[in-house]
């Protein structure tokens, strides 16, 4: 469900965003390397990663940010605009991990044309360990989006 299916007036501090689950596997990590032209070997080369003291290939930290952006935009709807996204990397993510993105509305403001929603975000692995956070995003949702529904 995104905000197109509900009234913008109903969005309130404390609302939870629908969670987003991501299963991590190596082909996706290689695809991300190709899509971003970032071929750092620690993101796909197991032997090289171990030679660097890592347990195995490590997910590009910015790929995790993309998951948060997806969650926020899915919730905010197609006419929304992601104004900002910030995150701190706290733990490494490896192939085989399953991640859960979560978020909560932290502040709501209005200007002439938009609802401005600030969200606190986080990302945990299957062990319940926080791998990304604190994190936050601000998304603008035009009132026009609701008028057209």
């Amino acid at each position: 469900m995104n905000v197109a299916t509900r009234s913008l007036q109903d969005i309130a501090v404390g609302d939870s965003l629908p969670t987003l689950e991501k299963k991590i596997y190596l082909p996706k990590m290689m695809a991300y390397a190709a899509a971003t032209w970032d071929f750092a070997r620690i993101h796909y080369d197991a032997a090289y990663s171990r030679s660097q003291g890592l347990p195995g290939p490590v997910v590009d930290g910015q790929m995790l940010g993309a998951f948060l952006a997806q969650m926020v935009q899915q919730w905010a709807g197609p006419r929304s605009f992601l104004q900002s996204l910030s995150f701190q990397n706290r733990g490494m993510v490896h192939p085989g991990d399953t991640l859960t993105c979560g978020g909560r509305v932290a502040n709501v403001q209005r200007d002439v044309e938009n609802l401005l929603v600030e969200c606190d975000l986080w990302l945990d692995n299957q062990k319940g360990e926080r791998v990304l956070g604190p994190a936050s995003a601000t998304v603008s949702i035009p009132f026009q989006a609701e008028a057209e529904e």
Partner: peptide, 20 residues
């Protein structure tokens, strides 16, 4: 949006042995 902020395609001169 995060494609823009994570792309390395803007950098010239190819990659080194570490893939950077």
């Amino acid at each position: 949006p995060t494609l823009l902020t994570d792309t390395f395609r803007i950098y010239p001169d190819g990659l080194n042995e570490s893939g950077l």
